[in-house]
Write a protein that binds this DNA or RNA. Structure first.
Lengths: 212, 212
DNA sequence: ATTAAACTACACTACTTAGTTTTAGTGATG
DNA sequence: CATCACTAAAACTAAGTAGTGTAGTTTAAT
């Protein structure tokens, strides 16, 4: 059963374990031995697949970002493709997006670890991660907002800036308050933050047709 | 206030050095020996002033937060006490506030280190730091905005939410893009972000008849 | 000058780390 | 069968870690 979908099975086990341990312990504190144990693999095998600890870190941060980005893409398709009630759809998207933070705790733990390492990371690694993760977050949102604007439901000059403001007013607010998902947040509190954010966003860019 | 007034000179040297080294290396990687060297002090002296590494970290994060909070208070007094042109004053405040990020690089490096440790920190330490730093950021802004609203230049129902939105649209945007000050940001870019943020803020809460 | 507190320098403990090497074994391919 | 690529397990190297103990030195107030 060599499920070799490009990646040997062991490599995937190592990557998954690395994500957990790096997320839980941070880069420096995470030991390669601990990752090996978590992966159910010998330490030597890790070094057969990855040059060193740093390359392992680089690989898993980017792969993790890809995974989350994919999830967010799905959420945008689900909520922002066909708009029935703009405010409700934006709120539903925001709430699901926030929920995704708590559905990928290892990923956001990894984000915290990565942010702590920013000044020590090779420029290239940071760029690759930014491109895979945060950058896509609003680069991919912008076209959806543009499409909604084209149908006359939103009005702005720059879709990218609007997307940026949407993210700031919803998911960034949550990330900031919870230290990137480290602190728990009640579903109801998340909904309230997102609702406030969406209402502000619509006051900024909404077209007055659905009234109060 | 964590007064650095009655504090022996050596203790201050240690705290200053710890801020630099923790900021540069992160909590785990920073060694107490390195902090001692940076402070020009023997390691034993550090342990005469602080119970252990963790208490040292706790002390310097909170002292650093106090310092930055004080600076921000000064900026609010300077720009938000007497309003001449609301938009210009808010922009000037925002720009100075962003500049403060780069005037306290060790502090924001420390913030990154702290965020990475959030899940391992004693709850009490995190609470104390949140209270000294980020929490005050908009708790103290709210009264200024309220005073401006009382003069009829702004309109909102909840000053705290307005303050939160102001911060999100200006300084949080910058912090997020620069990984909490880790990446450089041109003065002009900072000004553009803040200007966009302030304009959005005024579309949300501004009263049309004022100035201009 | 005396005294007490604070300091330095440094050896020392008990432990952890990244990465390598060794030894023994696995399953597949030709 | 033999080779090949991989693996586990454990020992090992070389380095670094937090924190302690102590002997001798500085500092400042009396």
């Amino acid at each position: 059963m060599t499920g070799s979908h490009g990646m040997p099975e062991k490599r995937r086990a190592i990557a998954a374990a690395a994500r957990v341990v790096f997320g839980r312990e941070g880069y420096t504190r995470a030991s390669v031995d601990a990752i090996a144990t978590e992966a159910g693999v010998s330490k030597r095998t890790i070094y057969n697949h990855f040059a060193d600890k740093e390359e392992l870190f680089r690989a898993v941060t980017i792969e993790g970002a890809d995974e989350v980005t994919e999830t967010i893409n799905t959420l945008m398709e689900r909520h922002l493709r066909k708009i029935l009630d703009l405010q409700e759809d934006l709120i539903a998207f925001g709430v699901d997006r926030v929920r995704a933070i708590y559905e990928f705790p290892e990923h956001y733990a990894l984000v915290r670890a990565l942010q702590a390492e920013v000044t020590r990371l090779p420029e290239q690694t940071l760029e690759a991660w930014t491109a895979a993760g945060p950058a896509t977050a609003h680069q991919r949102l912008a076209p959806y907002l543009q499409a909604i604007a084209d149908r006359g439901l939103l009005a702005f000059e720059d879709a990218n800036k609007a997307a940026n403001h949407f993210n700031l007013l919803t998911v960034t607010d949550v990330l900031q308050r919870t230290y990137y998902g480290a602190l728990p947040l009640a579903e109801s509190a998340a909904r309230e933050i997102v609702t406030d954010g969406v209402r502000a966003f619509l006051r900024l860019y909404g077209v007055q047709n659905s009234a109060k």
